[in-house]
Amino acid sequence: MDALTATLSLLRLEGIGPGLYWQLVERFGSAAAVLQQPPQNLNRKLPERAHAQLAEFQRRGPESELGQWALAERARCAELCVYLLHRDDDIYPALLKEIHRPPPVLYVRGNPHTLSLPQVAVVGARRASRAGLDNARDLSADLAASGFAITSGLALGVDAAAHSGALKGGGKTIAVLGTGVDRIYPVRNAVLAEQILAADGAIVSEMPLGSAPEAGNFPRRNRVISGLSLGTLLVEAAVRSGSLITARLALEQNREVFAIPGSIHNPMARGCHHMIKHGAHLVETSRDIAEQLGGLLSGMASQPGLFDDDRSEVSQLTAEQRRIVSALGGDPRSIEQLARDTGCETGELMASLLHLELEGLVESLPGGYQLTGSGVRALPG
């Protein structure tokens, strides 16, 4: 039995999670060796069903329940054009292999060689602000146009914006799932998933085919996102969030962590500020990331950054609208504050804000307004 089939069989054994899998493989040398051990040599906490499965495997080998499931899983992958990468395979991504106890097997739809490109993970809130989405999309487009693959989790919000930005930049992007690669989650991003594949990207998971979006799968997904990447960019995140867990995992894996600062009044900026306090690099432009990653790719200097001096939007604004943009600055402001700071009548102010919102320069929030990423670029120097 080859290493891949043995690994799949062992992972299918009742009660075997990733942690126990690695404990056993490190003790006995390989998945195949583990499967030949008497049950009492493994772990007395294994359920009785695992003992029965193991005994049957040792009697029947590939004809056993475990062996048949592994062979059927390989056949299903072949039918769906899903690659199975064993940790010992040459094309298993080298960076991911470096982390402590990496996924024994990766399921990959798309181009598996994309996983070996230099990657930047871009993560953040599902309910991000318009400014946060703009930042994720624009930074990802810049980095992708310069040769970095953008890695994220295909979730709503920042993840989807990052994938879309990478596609807009003409680059490649990798979606890491907490489900089987044949079960896109959330379903609303199914079209985006197909666009990722059409652009020679990849959809990746360590979960077997058909796996459901269970809560316990997503920390494992986050660990793969950070493990594949040279660095992780945190766009917007609450202090307690999966995105912040991804950033912390990146630090534990000795990878670079970057964070975009925000308003002290924005709860979605607090996770970024927390990470900056604990060693993350503050990011204003795409160059901040590329330079910190050691200049791995040439051409970044010629690419316009997110906050570069490209303010073509401002030339189309009236003097009153420019005053509103200046008054908003970097913080959310209420209607009352804007009226006071600009001297505009409330009716005129609301009309101008509506125009700015339609132009994509301003977004409304509960109790006020703030600039989008495009609005930030329109700020006077």
Rank of each mutant, 00 (worst) to 15 (best):
D2W: 00
T5K: 09
S9I: 05
G17Y: 02
Y21H: 14
W22G: 03
G29D: 09
Q37A: 13
P38Q: 09
R44P: 13
E48T: 13
R49D: 08
A55S: 09
C77G: 05
L80V: 00
C81W: 00
K97E: 07
K97S: 12
H100Q: 12
Y107M: 02
G110D: 07
L117C: 05
G132F: 08
N135C: 13
A141M: 04
S146W: 06
D159L: 00
D159I: 02
A162M: 00
A166Q: 10
K168F: 04
K172Q: 15
G178E: 05
R183P: 08
R188I: 03
N189L: 05
V191K: 12
G201S: 12
I203R: 12
S211Y: 07
P213V: 13
A215V: 12
G216K: 08
P219A: 06
R221P: 07
R223C: 10
V224P: 04
S226H: 06
S226T: 05
G231F: 07
S243T: 11
L244P: 06
I245L: 15
R248I: 02
L249R: 11
I260M: 11
I264T: 11
K277N: 12
H278C: 01
H278M: 07
E284V: 14
R287T: 02
I289N: 05
A290T: 12
Q292P: 00
S298M: 01
M300C: 07
T318W: 07
A327R: 08
G329I: 07
G329S: 13
G330L: 13
E336D: 15
E336H: 13
A339F: 01
R340C: 02
C344V: 02
E345V: 05
T346E: 07
L349M: 03
L354E: 14
V362A: 11
P366H: 10
Y369W: 15
T372A: 04
G373H: 04
G381C: 12
